[in-house]
């Protein structure tokens, strides 16, 4: 895999800020979906810049699966406190308790799919008309097809075959009642762009992005974090490894990579020489060839 170190192309930041300002101007009730991962941390920074010295004029929403890395939640709360942001949290556990969704069982059980229901409920509860997300087109083949302003019908569904034309930089955020728009300001960034940006902006990130010791086990050729949320079979040996994570998802579906990265430069170095993509470490994408598109159709990010 050959990618080249390069510096961060500043025009990507200008473009993202422009998009975020359009959201604030065109919508009544926008929200920023915040997972605590590097992409949403980047979004928060961009939103801060877009309205400085004013405050970010919309809240953050975290859909908490209950299967998060502890470090992410801690990081989230610190960031929110430091920047004086408004944070809304909605829990997948509540959706399970209300019998809106059924917990998966078995070896590959995950709450990744369930969170869509919690998200759609939250959108309805608050009447959000625009949800800003940190998805990037380089992540996955269905995401590569997304518009920057991506309209969802009143069931939260994405219709890939009926996307609006999106011309030049003109963003059409008009929607009918009940519909909402998913907005992707960092559509055109790659994983490396995000890391170079975090480095140049000196942004803090959760500690799990750096190498640390952790109890892990191997499954299907990948290293998974051991936790009480996951069923480990007898032949899967749990052992301590020095690892880091390339993406922050659920503990049940985010694989680790062995790593020695203690500084951001090391992370960038590792990405430059990685042969596997970022989402190659996401078990949720591997369920089927079209796993992402199918989840998006049902309202997933």
């Amino acid at each position: 895999m050959a990618i080249h170190p390069a510096v961060f192309p500043r025009e990507l930041e200008d473009e993202a800020i422009y998009i975020i300002r359009e959201v604030a101007a065109q919508f009544e009730k926008p929200v920023l979906l915040f997972s605590g991962g590097k992409d949403s941390i980047t979004l928060v920074r961009l939103a801060q810049k877009a309205f400085y010295p004013g405050k970010i004029p919309f809240p953050l929403l975290h859909v908490d699966t209950g299967h998060n890395f502890e470090e992410t939640i801690q990081f989230r709360d610190e960031l929110v406190a430091e920047l004086g942001l408004e944070l809304i949290v909605r829990y997948v556990q509540d959706s399970i308790d209300q019998k809106k969704v059924v917990e998966e069982t078995g070896k590959y059980a995950s709450r990744n799919v369930l969170q869509t229901v919690t998200l759609l409920d939250a959108i309805e509860e608050f009447g959000f008309d625009a949800c800003i997300g940190g998805a990037r087109r380089d992540e996955e083949k269905a995401r590569a097809k997304e518009r920057i302003f991506s309209v969802r019908n009143d069931f939260g569904q994405w219709d890939a075959k009926k996307q609006r034309p999106e011309l030049f930089d003109m963003l059409n955020g008009r929607i009918s009642l009940g519909e909402n728009v998913r907005v992707f300001p960092i559509s055109n960034w790659t994983e490396l762009d995000v890391w170079n940006y975090i480095k140049e902006e000196q942004l803090a990130i959760p500690s799990i992005y750096y190498a640390h010791e952790r109890e892990t086990f191997e499954r299907d050729g990948q290293i998974l974090p051991y936790s009480s949320f996951i069923t480990v079979s007898e032949d899967e040996l749990v052992s301590t490894r020095t690892v880091r994570f390339r993406t922050v998802g659920d503990m049940t579906c985010t694989a680790a990579v062995e790593s020695k990265a203690v500084a951001i430069e090391d992370i960038i170095g590792e990405i430059l020489s990685a042969t596997v993509s970022e989402r190659g470490a996401r078990i949720d994408d591997k369920r089927s060839e079209a796993a992402m598109e199918k989840r998006k159709q049902s309202g997933y990010f």
């Binding site: 990618i3 390069a6 083949k141 097809k145 790659t190 079209a290």
Partner: peptide, 25 residues
């Protein structure tokens, strides 16, 4: 690589734009 939608793969044609990123030095 770019025909990422189910319908595109079935029919072997491109239906909507895919954005692809790469870099050289």
């Amino acid at each position: 690589l770019t025909d990422g939608l189910i319908a595109e793969r079935e029919q072997g044609i491109t239906i909507d734009v895919a954005h692809i990123y790469f870099s050289t030095p």
